[in-house]
Design a protein around this nucleic acid. Structure first.
Lengths: 134, 134
DNA sequence: TCGGTGCATCGACATTCGTCGATACAAGAC
DNA sequence: GTCTTGTATCGACGAATGTCGATGCACCGA
């Protein structure tokens, strides 16, 4: 089970080159998806894509991890800063991977530590579907 | 409105008697939940509650059903109007129940048919959690 | 009263998911 | 080099989830 690469908007320019290790596959770019949910019914394809983003926030541990990153000073957080959510370290890592694969977080290794930050455009897209951001 | 919705995690089964009609749980209790995800880390309890709403939209079929109701003329839709999403009738019913339990939809029987409509405050609350990211 | 239609529930099944300990890998300190 | 710390992956397990056909209940028309 892997993520398939979706080209679109993978910031070809300002993107920091990741070190050779992490991020073997690009977190798919999910941004340009769908209109507000009230505008028209979603197609099956649109629903499939979008559901992945909502599902990523549909777990309590992931939601806490996400809000820990989102609310962390500087807009980013080292894993060590946020790993106290009551589950084991492998589980934290697993959930962070899910959030990355859904496009909600990005990660970058700097020295010993790995820093996560929110991908604002994806979150904005979700908000827009719910109708509050227009 | 007096019933509460607060079925926490254990109530997957018989928290509701099959009474003469639908609408076992009241909408309305999920609203005053949480601040924007960027404001501060969610507590475990907040995350538990909120994750249920996101999880409800985390399935492609449910997302389509939701958008079918949300975009339907008049703000509501009979089940018969939206049940063509490629799964069986019991499955549609099951998903609509999940959306009801999450507080995202309400239902009302009128004669032969059952009508679903979006609970706007709950959806607004979700949007608000995502909305102020920048 | 009876038959038909719309929707919900039940019971069963396969698949996915969340979790863990064990282990592997990366980087820095020594 | 070796040791230690931070993070990811692996393999396994039980629990939850999505799906279906069969069935039950509510309503309405004849």
């Amino acid at each position: 089970m892997d993520v398939n690469i979706d080209m679109c908007q993978n910031g070809s320019m300002s993107n920091v080159k990741a070190l050779p290790l992490l991020e073997p596959e690009a977190p798919e770019a999910v941004v340009p998806c769908c209109p507000p949910l009230t505008e028209r019914p979603l197609t099956a394809d649109e629903a499939e894509k979008t559901a992945r983003m909502f599902k990523a926030l549909g777990d309590p541990v992931r939601l806490r991890l996400f809000s820990l990153v989102a609310s962390h000073e500087g807009g980013e957080a080292c894993v060590c800063d946020i790993s106290d959510v009551g589950v084991s370290q492998p589980t934290v890592s697993h959930h962070l991977k899910k959030l990355r694969e859904a496009g909600l977080l990005t990660s970058e290794r700097r020295g010993t530590w790995v820093y996560y930050r929110v991908e604002p455009s994806v979150v904005a897209a979700m908000g827009q579907m719910l109708g509050t951001l227009d």
